[in-house]
Design a protein around this nucleic acid. Structure first.
Lengths: 202, 202, 202, 202
DNA sequence: GATGAATGAGCTTTCATTCAT
DNA sequence: AATGAATGAAAGCTCATTCAT
């Protein structure tokens, strides 16, 4: 643990978020207490409340943080001049590598954000706290359609496929049910997604 | 609410599970209290503990109940003598209709079972509490492969697609993000899944 | 301390109120904690909340209790067939005797109810939690006017005199500033009040 | 808010007291926090502690300030060469005008000083923090007796009448129970007090 | 004098679970 | 089987006060 007291201002906010992110995703939102978080980063409970005014607000800031992080990764891919099939492969790759290197991010999305609606009800209405991420998926999809590489279907139908599929795999991995590493499935899954989304009318 | 006191034995157990299922899926596991459940079915908290020895155990019995229910539905489809493409369509249909008619079942799976690992850690190791359901998906998949209709890929890669996709759509629906009813997407999604799983080597 | 566990239902509610009344009036509302009250009556904190759903609600029930108690005492006097001067003397007497025998009641009125507006804001709007008491003062005053014994002045001007005066004396007594017992002042004060309120137009 | 930083020394002390006075009387002593006060005057909490060594000490300085202020007003009246009846009228007038123009002063007296004994226990024993004010009431009363205009009764009996009555009226006003403005009652109340205190033996 | 981040004890309230009846 | 009062540990959050800068 790097000395928390050496950090300041915005850095401390981020240090708190990263630690809470780990605990929330590993232990669950309700089973992680504020004192747990404070102790883990070596600060006092009271001071934590100087940075986030409630446990719920902290949870909301974290999901925005994750959405922003993943959104930026996707943006890089969207900016590349490659085919939709290649983009799908890269998206799956980045998603699974994130799940491997920073599993708490994906777990948080699945187990904290998606599962505890009541926590995000006020402050994250609709999908405003994850819009950075969703926007990039939308851009990927619409460009693919425009270029004639992807079939012009309902966006949500495509989005649900993407996110549900990837999320489901990460979940199975988290449950230690998968016999192989996540990265083992990258090719299969990229192919499945491409098969599902591609435009046959050529 | 039908008179709880008229029921007996196993029927009471089931009445408790159904009420708890509704409350857990709607309000969340941690935000639903045992007194909430007892009051909703008109019995005392003390007596509820005569049927389930803890809140966690109740939650575990419920997921087994759901798995069994959905497993039976899938079994009917598996027993029909139709193509894999048709089976996929039927599975998607039954899933979305369940999500529409008894949304608490699917929501419970997504928001209670998948999200609150700690509750199911002891008693539902691996996927033993949802094996009825998973077994039928496995049967569907292996038969499709055997008949040469589906590509012989890793089971989990296919399973993740199926469950993640369907779950993701139900989630989007629960968030009131989908512009259309769930049933509207049945054809698109069935097609996407089939495209992803089908055997091209013919 | 009588065995709390022997009591039941409404009796326990009352036992809690009486103990809280003592502590709130002696130590102050904010400096008395719920554990303090629970410990003083030998019950658990959690169980106390089975009887009163918050500290504020408990405080509100207590002021209603006091108002009802004092209201009944005044009612007896109002029902007697005596002059207004005699009634004043009896009211002052009963007030000071209450202040002597059950000082917490009067202290509560002065130091908890009158002073901590925010606690009674929602639930005791206007004077609805003390209406039993005020109503009797109003009856006394209006009958005196009707009989021609008291001057027909604004009710609040008369009411403020009565309650402010008596309250002020009890306060001075509580501060241990009065050189004599409260009862020593009964005649002087009754006379002063009568002089202030009587009808000279005869 | 005038620039706090322009002031210095004793002026800053007074600025703090005036702001705390407003907040304590309006929001209550325990519901007003030190940061609330600091923010309201645009200074830091740390610096506030350079002027007052604790919240309790601040509260004590404020009551002394109020007592001194009101004492001076009464002194002017005592110095006038007018009858006791006229003095009573002037005292009531000044009291109610203060309650109208600077309501926080009277409210503080009633709701902070009188109600939160524990805060003033050490430092304001007896009535030493309000002696400036009480002394003037005493002077008024004793001169009235000496001149034969007021009956020679126990001082506290007279003092309680005065302060209790006026305080009670201000309280009723604060509760928005009075149908009229406070000043409307000046004549009635002055008369009531005079009737109560005057010497009939002439 | 001035700042405000930091402390941590202590508050109100909740709730799974027990048990005497 | 049935009741629901009782328990008490533990939660989220507050705030007077301190102190390094």
């Amino acid at each position: 643990m790097s000395k928390f007291s050496k950090l300041k201002g915005e850095q401390k906010r981020e240090a708190i978020m990263l630690q809470a992110l780990k605990l929330f995703s590993k232990e669950g939102f309700y089973t992680t207490t504020i004192p747990d978080i404070a102790k883990a980063i070596g600060m006092s409970v009271g001071n934590l409340y100087n940075y986030f005014k409630s446990k719920d607000m902290l949870a909301q800031e974290i999901i925005k943080y994750i959405s922003s992080y993943l959104g930026k990764e996707l943006q890089k891919i969207n900016n590349e001049d490659i085919s939709s099939a290649e983009k799908i492969h890269k998206i799956v790759t980045i998603y699974f590598h994130t799940a491997k290197d920073r599993p708490e991010m994906i777990e948080y999305f699945l187990r904290v954000y998606l599962a505890n609606r009541e926590v995000f009800k006020e402050g994250c209405e609709g999908m405003i706290c994850v819009s950075d991420f969703i926007t990039e998926i939308m851009i990927f999809f619409e460009e693919g359609v425009r270029k004639g590489e992807l079939r012009d279907q309902d966006f949500f139908s495509a989005f649900g496929l993407f996110m549900g599929y990837l999320g489901g795999m990460v979940f199975l991995h988290g449950e230690e049910i998968l016999p192989e590493e996540l990265t083992y499935y990258i090719d299969d899954i990229s192919r499945n997604i491409y098969q599902a989304l591609k435009n046959d009318q050529v």
